[in-house]
Amino acid sequence: MNDIRSVLRAYILENLLPGEDPSNLTDDTELKESGILDSMSTLKLVTYLEEQFAIEFAAADLEPANLSSIAALQRLVQSKL
C-alpha cells in the first residue's frame, strides 16, 4: 500500500506540482476540486499507473469518488492488483 502511495505522491509532485512544497500535498488533499487533476492529467496519471503496476483501468473506474484524493486513488489501484 505504501508503495502505491509513494508512487502516486512522487508522480503528482513531479509532474503536476513541480516546485510545490511536498508537505502541502497530503493523502486527503482534494485533487479534483483543487484543479490538480483535470481530464487530461487524469488520463496521463491513469496511463502511468497502468504501466507502473501492469493493471488496466476501465472508464467506470474514473468516477469522481475514485479520483478525489491520493487515498482514494490508492484504494482504486489496490483493487486492481
Binding site: N15, G19, N24, I36
Partner: peptide
C-alpha cells in the same frame, strides 16, 4: 495539454 506542464496548489 498532453505536453508535460506544471500545476501548482
Amino acid at each position: 495539454e498532453l505536453r508535460p506542464g506544471p500545476k501548482r496548489l
